[in-house]
Amino acid sequence: MKLSELPRRTAATVECVEDALPNDAIARRLRELGFVAGERVELMAAGPFSAEPLLVQVGYTRFALRRSEAARVRVSTAAVGEAA
């Protein structure tokens, strides 16, 4: 599932960040911010207009992401209990 599809207040584990293009600067920046495999992530809230931006928590840090940016992050809700 994509991070942009995750229900609010549901914990998940990052599987990977998908590159839209070769040498994708946005995907690389998401990895630098902490969106790496095994990291716990949670969608906290969505903005009032067209549900953008998304407020996402990775570890103890919160980020505002565009829906298109969040769609690059693949997550799984199955292994959350093991990762925490």
Rank of each mutant, 00 (worst) to 15 (best):
T77L: 00
Q57S: 13
L3H: 02
V80N: 03
Y60T: 15
E82L: 10
V58C: 13
L65A: 04
K2E: 10
A20V: 14
S4D: 12
A11I: 01
G59K: 09
G81C: 02
R31V: 02
L21H: 14
E52M: 11
A37V: 00
R28L: 08
A20K: 15
A25M: 07
A25R: 13
A83P: 00
V73N: 02
A37E: 13
R72M: 14
T61H: 10
G47Y: 07
C16H: 11
G47E: 08
A45Y: 01
L65D: 05
L30T: 05
C16P: 00
A51I: 01
V14I: 15
V75E: 04
V36A: 08
L6C: 03
V73S: 05
N23H: 11
R8N: 10
L3C: 04
S68A: 12
V75H: 03
F35Y: 10
A11K: 11
G47C: 08
A11V: 04
G81L: 01
V36Y: 00
M44F: 01
Y60A: 15
V41F: 01
E69R: 00
G47W: 05
I26H: 07
A71M: 09
V36P: 01
P53L: 07
D24F: 06
A25L: 08
R28E: 14
L21E: 15
R9H: 12
D24K: 07
A70P: 03
A79D: 15
L43S: 09
G34S: 04
D24M: 07
L65P: 08
C16Y: 12
V41A: 06
S4I: 02
P7K: 05
R74I: 11
R28Y: 03
Q57W: 04
E18Q: 13
L3Q: 06
Q57H: 07
R67K: 13
E32S: 13
G34Q: 03
A11N: 10
E52Y: 03
A83R: 11
V41L: 05
V75Q: 06
M1V: 01
A11P: 03
V75I: 15
A46R: 13
K2P: 00
L65C: 02
L55G: 04
I26M: 12
I26R: 13
F49R: 14
L21C: 11
D24H: 07
L21V: 15
E39I: 02
A20E: 14
A83E: 12
R28S: 14
A64W: 14
L33P: 01
V17P: 13
A27M: 02
A71W: 03
A64S: 12
R62W: 03
V41G: 05
A84K: 01
V80G: 03
A84M: 04
R62F: 07
S50D: 12
L3V: 01
E52Q: 15
G59R: 07
L21M: 14
V41E: 08
C16K: 15
